[in-house]
Design a protein around this nucleic acid. Sequence first.
DNA 1: CGCGTTATAGTTATAATATAACGACCTGGC
DNA 2: GCCAGGTCGTTATATTATAACTATAACGCG
Lengths: 176, 176
Amino acid sequence: MSETQAPHKPDANLRSPFPNPDQQTAKKVAQTVERAAKVFADRNLRFTKLRQQVFEEIAATHASIGAYEILARLGEKGTRVAPISIYRAIDALLDAGVIHRLESKNAFFACRRTDHMSKGKRPIFLSCEKCGAVGEVDGQHIFDLIGEAAKSAKFTPRVKFVEVQGLCPRCAGGDS
Amino acid sequence: MSETQAPHKPDANLRSPFPNPDQQTAKKVAQTVERAAKVFADRNLRFTKLRQQVFEEIAATHASIGAYEILARLGEKGTRVAPISIYRAIDALLDAGVIHRLESKNAFFACRRTDHMSKGKRPIFLSCEKCGAVGEVDGQHIFDLIGEAAKSAKFTPRVKFVEVQGLCPRCAGGDS
DNA sequence: CGCGTTATAGTTATAATATAACGACCTGGC
DNA sequence: GCCAGGTCGTTATATTATAACTATAACGCG
């Protein structure tokens, strides 16, 4: 398991966690969907139509989105499914690591990074209180410290959450 | 794994975040309630009967407890209130800092520490997946690092959550 | 192909968590 | 007394999530 491949081209992991919203074009979404499809293929999982539809709705925004909002948006497009179906798709997408769950908002957002998808190792989530945008930054050293803090209390950590609410660069800058 | 048994005076902040359940006696709860009452008094807030009852239910367990579980337990004791009343009491207790909210479980637990109650500064929460017990450990340096990580992404942090799920000392040790 | 096995999705119903809106009452100060 | 603010009751509803069961799709295999 070596990451010997050191990419120099400006890929998704080098971009700002808070890109401009106008980057959120249909084309961008399609690219994100393709990457998700590849993750599913690589893991021998089925990227079914429903899962793709749900993922597309999540990927179509940088904000986090709730399950029932996904339900509503799919409904507007003619795909009417039950809540449980949305949740099942969400579970599959979470398992595959192509979306994350924002615990503090009971909502989901697309992972736009290609690293830190491994289990037991999660990035820090930054959630904008104004526009809802969610970004990720690496926090491996922080998670390591959290693990140490837990162990100092004789606690055996398994899953860790770090979520930050505040203002994203755009919302903090031009206050309207 | 012999923890040198702390023989000296058991101050609340020096005790393990995961004390024995048998410490959770009515007397202990009463002491915790008194401390909460003092916090309310110091801040010129009203520690009403309902707030006290809700707090007692939360303080009566080391596990986190949901709003509707509180509702049910109060109901068994003859106090029948609407969900909204529970939530209003919870809000007051959260504001006062005598309980915390566990985001990853939509549940609440009593704060047993006298420090780190200040706003914008929160401890790390350790939640046992087996018995539900929740402990707190100081994580100021970790929160500082999280703040730095956020700022490195041009993000202005306001509220931070760090929650760990895993096994508490008792559940990790004697698997029953 | 037909069959068994498993994963996925549909359907219905309900559980669990949380808040809105409005009125009553209580408490402190004038 | 009367107002102001905070608290609580009451009713209704919004939001998030899952249980239980049925039906269908996908896949491997003889």
